[in-house]
Design a protein around this nucleic acid. Structure first.
Length: 862
RNA sequence: GGGCGUUUAGCUCAGUUGGUAGAGCGCCUCCCUUACAAGGAGGAUGUCGGGAGUUCGAGCCUCUCAACGCCCACCA
């Protein structure tokens, strides 16, 4: 903190402070500590990732919880790390190769993986380094990578165990195939987009008799893989055709007409071509009817070269193939009509390429048995979602879960620990290759989410359940993430955690909203609407970024709309704190700053009471993950209570011990949200410090000895009075230089104590206590049961004052009417709780009294 | 098709067991009062999306309608 500048230099301070924490190893958790554990594992950012606003929010919230618990007597561990991000990383490296006109096949698998490791090692720390700019207090000495040795061992063990339990199997099924990634992807990695398309109606002639059956399809090129035409058995139009045979146009292949309930009579023509090798539903129908599976599109998205595909179409890519097929159908006059039809098309989440449903041999996890305990854990409350509504979402997905396709035809990732005998083809699933000379490992790697599903325990040393970290920090406490990866990640961690550690991997899942731009749109590079958190940090400071995000983060987990300017809010607050602290510290003259509880002014008691109330609220809200509320409570307390009133009052009469005490506690309360500025100021505080930094200082809690409710109430009266007098000054344009006299008709004991406050804060000259004042040319204000007269002579326009008072009276009358209506209603007085009734009664009396005072005033003026 | 969310001051949004509304930004007036103009003082602004119901009393609970958004399913 410079003594000169009135503007807080956030970046300079933040860099200095973060370095101080790092140099002192402040974030290193001690597995041998006696303190109770509190642990969070970071949602591992992709190694390809660059810090974005989503991370900024997610990391900030985790850091707040970690710092809060660290100050509250817990051994807090925040486990950092990165995800190897199979497809994403492989894409990046392949793109780099493409620049040299090479493909991964030019390098070969071994060399390619080596190259990818090089790239990963170079970039592995990039995003975690960026997280440091956010003030993250994670323990980098424990940093992990989902592809490191420990994680690899965990993955192998889990795979082998699941296989041995019969929960992993290899099978031939329809998968979502991305022709660009050249890999199968899972259902959750497939997004559906609505696209305009056509419904082509094609006529298949009946065999050996006149007539034809017309089917409708959105993918005519797959017709060559047809093995049947299906109709609904209850469809009178087609009923009689079941069992007959028809002839496929263009190829002349004969296929049966079958009946199946799956067919929707009302859609299209009511007749459906069955292509089991290229459509998941057709696959099921095909199985029910023991039909052949004919693959006609290959893994590159090209039409296959085989006897099923007409020569003109063989080898064409699927787009050209469709065109050509339609053309040929037209020529053969079997294209009945083309109907425009918008439909949903599966896209690869990574590269947006249209998915090709494809028959393929893949590895799957049988999810139903694994899901069961994972459902129970949430239903019984072992795991709680905040906000709770996400539980429903999670349960719905888990209850309808389908098997998880875990094999990927990539080179970057955990290679599947299945080994095939070179001669016999016999398969062995084991931790190690049983005999490298005779067995070859499965070529496929595992879905990235397979290893991240183990993240909470693989990072803690599992499968070594005796490791210190595992014993101390597992299960973890809270998981913080956005709702977009509940299925991808959270659900899988829960299933895997329960299966392999017999414990829920965390007890609370705190789900926050997503960051969006001002218009509520998702931020994306292609839209060009991204805001770079690093830029914001440079411009406004990290604490400002954190505070603003936190303030905007509501309990309901609503998405957060941001724009650059919104962060001025946090910056301004930081600046305010800096200046207030500077002022307080500049004015400390005493060595002994112990509070003398026998010698406190009502102002002192008021601020201590307010601090205490604020503390209670902050702690309650932190415990309940109402973090946005915490930010707003602290903002309100500091600005409107501490700065606007207490510090102002201290210019008149100060209690240095209380000034410092409140600032100290406030800094501690705020530290989890704004760690740097609070640390920087705290280091300069003249309080006894047992700890190296505020990050280890004890978090304040509610304290009975700070309860001063009565004095606090009196002080509120004082503030009311000052505000009322200021209001008079403003309304009658009384220049600040011109002091006013006031006449007070009541409550002399209190008012005589606060004359200096009135002098300074309302520019009052003389205070007189008189029951009756006869000075007509006055402005009036009432505070509770007290009338205050401000003689103004020529400064006052009496008509204006009458208007002012009448307006007030009207407002009170309006409120009185409503209150009286309530009180006169026997239903209210009988059925409402007694304290509500008595409070209403009190309110009525107060209003009546005030109204009386005002009416007297009006009468006098008129 | 199923589920969820949102609708409150010009804008962005709070509002925790139902007791008649708040903040930030913006706006108007005044003030460079020696911590802070990234500040201070004062002020204006709302039939709480529409309708119905429960209740003594509804922004909050129930039903219904509407608009916008999201998720799941993927009827060729």
């Amino acid at each position: 903190m410079s003594e000169l500048s009135t503007v807080y230099n956030a970046r300079e301070t933040e860099k200095e402070i973060y370095k101080f924490w790092e140099d002192n190893n402040c974030f290193r958790a001690n597995a041998k500590s006696d303190k109770p554990p509190y642990s969070i594992v970071i949602p591992p950012p992709n190694v390809t990732g660059v810090l974005h606003m989503g991370h900024a929010l997610d990391e900030t919230l985790q850091d707040i919880l970690i710092r809060y618990k660290r100050m509250s007597g817990y051994e807090a561990l925040w486990m950092p790390g990165c995800d190897h991000a199979g497809i994403a990383t492989q894409n990046v490296v392949e793109k780099n190769l493409a620049k040299e006109n090479k493909t991964r096949h030019d390098l070969g698998r071994e060399k390619f993986v080596e190259t990818t490791w090089e790239w990963a090692n170079e970039h592995k720390d990039r995003i975690l380094e960026q997280c440091k700019l956010l003030g993250a207090s994670f323990d980098l000495s424990r940093k992990r990578f989902t592809l490191d040795e420990g994680c690899s061992n965990a993955v192998k063990k889990v795979f082998v165990d699941l296989y041995n339990k019969g929960l992993i199997y290899k099978g031939n099924y329809i998968v979502n195939w991305c022709p660009r990634c050249q890999s199968a992807i899972s259902d959750v990695e497939t997004n559906y987009e609505t696209e305009p398309g056509n419904l082509w109606e094609i006529s298949y002639a009946l065999l050996d008799e006149p007539g034809a059956i017309v089917i409708a399809t959105t993918r005519p090129e797959t017709m060559f893989g047809d093995v049947a035409i299906a109709v609904n058995p209850n469809d009178y139009k087609y009923k009689d055709l079941i069992g007959k045979t028809c002839v496929m146009p263009l190829t002349g292949r004969r296929i049966p007409i079958i009946g199946d309930d799956y067919v929707d009579k009302s859609f299209g023509t009511g007749a459906l071509k069955i292509t089991p090798a290229h459509d998941p539903n057709d696959f099921e129908v095909g199985k029910r009817h023991n039909l052949e599976q004919i693959k006609v599109i290959d893994e590159c998205g090209n039409m296959m070269v085989n006897e099923y595909v007409p020569p003109q179409i063989q080898g064409l890519n699927r787009v050209e193939a469709r065109k050509k097929t339609v053309e040929m159908l037209k020529e053969n006059e079997v294209l009945v009509r083309v109907v425009e039809h918008t439909h949903n098309v599966g896209k690869c989440q990574r590269c947006s390429t249209t998915i090709e449903p494809l028959l393929s041999t893949q590895w799957f996890v049988k999810m139903k048995p694994l899901a069961k305990p994972a459902i129970e854990a949430v239903k019984t409350g072992k795991i709680k979602f905040i906000p709770q509504r996400w539980e429903k979402n999670y349960l719905m997905w888990m209850e309808n879960i389908r098997d998880w396709c875990i094999s990927r035809q990539l080179w970057w990732g955990h290679q599947i620990p299945a080994y095939y005998h070179n001669q016999t083809g016999e398969m062995v699933v084991a931790l190690e290759n049983p005999d490298p000379n005779n067995y070859t490992q499965d070529k496929d790697v595992l879905d990235t989410w397979f290893s991240s599903g183990l993240w909470p325990f693989e990072t803690m040393g599992w499968p070594d359940t005796n490791s210190e970290d595992y014993k101390k920090f597992y299960p973890t406490s809270t998981l913080v993430t956005g709702f977009d990866i509940i299925f991808f990640w959270v659900a899988r961690m829960i299933t895997m955690g329960l299966e392999f550690t017999n414990q829920a991997p965390f007890s609370t899942v705190y789900i926050h909203g997503l960051i969006r731009d001002e218009l509520g749109q998702k931020m994306s590079k292609s839209k060009g609407n991204t805001i770079d958190p690093v830029d914001l940090i440079e411009k406004y400071g990290c604490d400002a970024l954190r505070f603003t995000l936190t303030y905007l983060c509501t309990y309901g987990g609503q998405d957060i709309k941001i724009s650059d300017e919104k962060f001025e809010f946090g910056r301004n607050f930081a600046n305010k704190i800096y200046n207030a602290a500077r002022f307080v510290l500049m004015n400390i003259t005493k060595k002994d700053l112990t509070i003398d509880y026998n010698n406190l002014s009502i102002a002192d008691k008021w601020i201590l009471n307010e601090l205490n109330e604020c503390t209670k609220l902050v702690v309650d809200n932190l415990e309940n993950f109402r973090i946005g509320e915490v930010a707003s409570i602290l903002y309100e307390f500091f600005r409107t209570k501490y700065c606007d009133w207490y510090v102002e009052l201290s210019k008149i009469e100060k209690n240095e011990a209380v000034l410092v005490y409140v600032l100290d506690k406030f800094l501690r309360l705020l530290h989890p949200i704004m760690p740097h500025i609070t640390e920087a100021i705290w280091q300069k505080m003249p309080v006894k410090k047992d700890e190296i930094g505020i990050l280890f200082a004890s978090y304040p809690t509610f304290d009975d000895k700070l309860k001063f409710n009565n004095d606090a109430k009196k002080m509120e009266t004082v503030f009311e009075t000052i505000k009322a007098l200021r209001n008079i000054r403003a309304e009658f344009n009384i220049p600040l230089g011109l002091k006013i006299d006031i006449i007070i008709d009541n409550n002399e004991e209190l008012y005589s104590q606060i004359i200096p406050y009135l002098n300074r804060l309302a520019k009052v000259n003389e205070v007189r206590f008189e029951k009756e004042s006869n000075i007509k040319k006055s402005a009036y204000c009432t505070v509770n049961d007290t009338k205050i007269t401000v003689p103004l002579e020529d400064l006052i326009d009496l008509d204006q004052e009458i208007k002012r008072q009448t307006k007030k009276a009207d407002k009170i009358k309006l409120e009185l009417t409503s209150i009286e209506k309530r009180l006169n209603n026997p239903n209210f007085t009988n059925s409402a709780p007694k304290d509500v009734v008595s409070k209403t009664q009190e309110k009525k009396e107060e209003l009546l009294q005030e109204l009386q005072l005002i009416e007297e005033t009006i009468n006098k003026l008129s």
